[in-house]
Amino acid sequence: MNNEKVQNIDSNTACVNESTQQHPAWYNLKYAAVGIIFGIVFVKAEIISWFRIQEMFRLQSFHMFGVIGTAVVVGAISVFLIKKLDIKTIHGEKIKIADKEFNKGQIYGGLLFGFGWALTGACPGPLFAHIGAGFYAVLVVILSAVAGTWTYGYFRDKLPH
């Protein structure tokens, strides 16, 4: 079963919501601007802190639950309004959000990522933020994460999905 099913997941994980419009490369700076705001929030709200993540998993602090919970509520209201009011992109394109299809990877992979999250105290976004904040030892963690992603790609067809 695996091969065909795995290929379907493929189309679900790369190049979704691909815009049909062509723009010069510098247009991508708008995403950098959003990233800058995200990076500032990451540091200022201590979301990149290993200590905050440990407190979350030990139920010693509400902080991270509050951050993620509020973000989901605000995100959900936004997506609802975008769909309801048929809001377009700034270039006039219809906004499309691909559905996520279930596969067992979300459980197995999810558990493995959970292990890594508790060990490193960081999900992928905060890893990049640590480099910006000048904490270069985290480069090791990023390289290892790239190796992990590569290893997943290598063994993908053999893993249960």
Partner: peptide, 17 residues
Amino acid sequence: IMVVGGFLVGFGTRYAG
């Protein structure tokens, strides 16, 4: 923590999509 943890972050996130 750094190497195994980082590997699990990269492997797990992609596996989970």
